[in-house]
Write a protein that binds this DNA or RNA. Structure first.
Lengths: 194, 194
DNA sequence: CCAAAACTGGCACTCAGTGGCACTTTAAGG
DNA sequence: CCTTAAAGTGCCACTGAGTGCCAGTTTTGG
């Protein structure tokens, strides 16, 4: 890796690490960007060249995760129906979340304690929704009705996923996330006609 | 109405009106709170006694709408199944939105042009989701499974509703919102098994 | 080794939002 | 009415996020 890249990666990591420490020790709002910069040995001005804002520090894997999700969506393109694709992806993420359970839970506690972070999380969900809508759209073909169906389905999908995650977080990550996920996707598939 | 109440209502309206004008003329971010205060003839400090933040000005009906929704949810409590309740409520709101179409569209254009406002909108959706989850929960009875089902359903519901609204906005409010809503709720009820 | 490009730091600035306190207005009882 | 407590307002000073600008440094590629 070229030197420049290396340094940038290092600075980025330093900022993330510094932020993580402070956020978890003193809380998000109690931490100023100046403090993070001081810890990371970087100027304030430079900070904003690495992160759009303070919130972004709380979601360092945002782009990674989205890209992985997109890749998985593409990969699941030839499954029998869209939901089956999601089921597979769900297994993957469920496993990953279970493995990193402690860190992820801590992260989520942080997010849930700060409205601004909750808002950012919704923004992320929106990205995922759009990604799914695009994928589903390819399946459903042309026409306004297909478009609507794809978007409805994506909306419902992110809705059940988020609800599932919240439940899992609330139960301290104890339940089997893969199972919860399948239950959620059953709902998506079968609907909620009681 | 006691004088004090009257005055407070007047100030609130003045602030909303001032903000609306500026927001639509110059945009949300280009408008400072000071300018709004000047227009409304009120001090900055007072502004923050009426609104939590600048964003709140863009959703003056937030609490009204939520309360109406809660009331309607309560009212629809004895419909055959939860989705039928939603169908009725959907008709009501669809009608209202169609009537105030122009204003609502303008408002939405504003919201969509500012990330911070989009974020607030998600926050509002979250309130609605919680409201629905609580209602559904009453239907589904006790137990963790019922709880999960209620939450999944609420998540899916808000998901399809939001997707529908976005579609409607995107089409400049031309489509029949009531029909779109029913289509969305069909999806919620029947699922998306293709 | 050199020039262009990329990156950094520091400064000054705007604006959102908060705490504190003195001052004015309203409500309510005698 | 008149008084007094409560509610509401204005002003001031302050913190902290985020931005524009420009001068100085580091890396890259030839």
């Amino acid at each position: 890796m070229p030197l420049r890249e290396t340094k940038k990666a290092a600075v980025r990591q330093a900022l993330i690490a510094a932020a993580n420490g402070r956020f978890h020790r003193h809380g998000f709002e109690q931490t100023t960007i100046d403090e993070i910069c001081a810890d990371a040995g970087v100027s304030r001005r430079t900070f904003f060249r690495y992160f759009e804002n303070k919130e972004a520090l709380a979601f360092p894997h945002r782009t990674d995760r989205l890209e992985r999700f997109l890749a998985l969506l593409d990969g699941a393109d030839q499954s029998a129906n869209p939901v089956d694709g999601l089921r597979a992806i769900c297994q993957t993420f469920a496993h990953e979340y279970s493995v990193n359970r402690v860190a992820i839970l801590a992260q989520q506690r942080l997010v849930d304690s700060v409205p601004a972070l909750v808002a950012r999380e919704h923004e992320i969900d929106r990205d995922w929704e759009t990604a799914m809508a695009t994928t589903f759209r390819r399946r459903f073909g042309r026409g306004a009705a297909a478009e609507r169906r794809a978007r409805l389905m994506a909306g419902a999908a992110i809705g059940v996923i988020r609800a599932t995650m919240r439940y899992w977080y609330e139960k301290d990550g104890k339940p089997d996330l893969a199972r919860l996920g399948q239950e959620a996707l059953d709902g998506l598939e079968q609907g909620f006609l009681s």
